[in-house]
């Protein structure tokens, strides 16, 4: 499968490596036209304010919304913020593709970043995953249509609504490919 990765800013190369390791093709894209070659899209970690400004500046919003109407999209950390309906203080509206309310930098500054085990559910199987949280956001509220797939303690850290998958941590910073594999094979 051809997995597009929005490559405006952030750790898109890490996602590309995960996709390639799973035997799929990664396409790092900066233009709307390239989306036509992609079967699914990943919005990476990075600085959400910087990425949303570039989406506006490069007029990518309509193409991204059109793509998401028919294809699966995954967002990690900043990607989660950009996909959410209520993203906190962003300079432009988010893409609003999943009905969650987010608090940016909810855990604090870099000194409060952490790595800890999270409990996730993939294809009905509960399992542990190493959650890398870097200046991470929190999902404060979610609509009934949103399926919760992951917890850290009582905090919701991974969620899905039909074709949209989000997590507040960074599976791409580990060598563990289970979440990427789940997105590519099971999210439609």
């Amino acid at each position: 499968m051809n997995i597009g990765i929005l490559a405006l800013q952030g750790d898109y190369v890490k996602h590309a490596r995960a996709v390639e390791k799973l035997g799929h093709t990664s396409i790092c894209l900066k233009e709307a036209d390239t989306l036509q070659k992609c079967d699914k899209l990943i919005i990476p970690g990075g600085e959400s304010t910087a990425i949303i400004r570039l989406i506006e500046k490069l007029k990518l919003r309509p193409a991204l919304l059109e793509f998401a109407a028919e294809h699966a999209v995954m967002g990690t950390c900043a990607g989660l913020i950009l996909l959410s309906k209520i993203p906190g203080n962003l300079p432009f509206p988010s893409l609003g593709l999943i009905d969650i309310e987010v608090e940016r930098n909810a855990y604090g500054r870099q000194i409060d970043s952490f790595i800890d085990t999270v409990q996730i559910t993939l294809n009905g199987q509960e399992q542990d995953f190493e959650g890398v949280f870097i200046r991470a956001p929190k999902i404060k509220k979610y609509a009934e249509t949103v399926e919760i797939l992951g917890y850290h303690g009582t905090d919701v850290v991974m969620a899905q609504d039909k074709n949209i998958l989000v997590c507040s941590f960074h599976p791409e910073l580990t060598n563990d490919l289970r979440i990427h594999d789940f997105f590519i094979s099971s999210v439609d």
Binding site: Q9, G10, D11, V13, G45, C77, Q110, V132, R135, H170
Partner: peptide, 8 residues
């Protein structure tokens, strides 16, 4: 990890 987020 934070350095990774600042890339590009």
């Amino acid at each position: 990890g934070l350095a990774e987020m600042l890339k590009g």
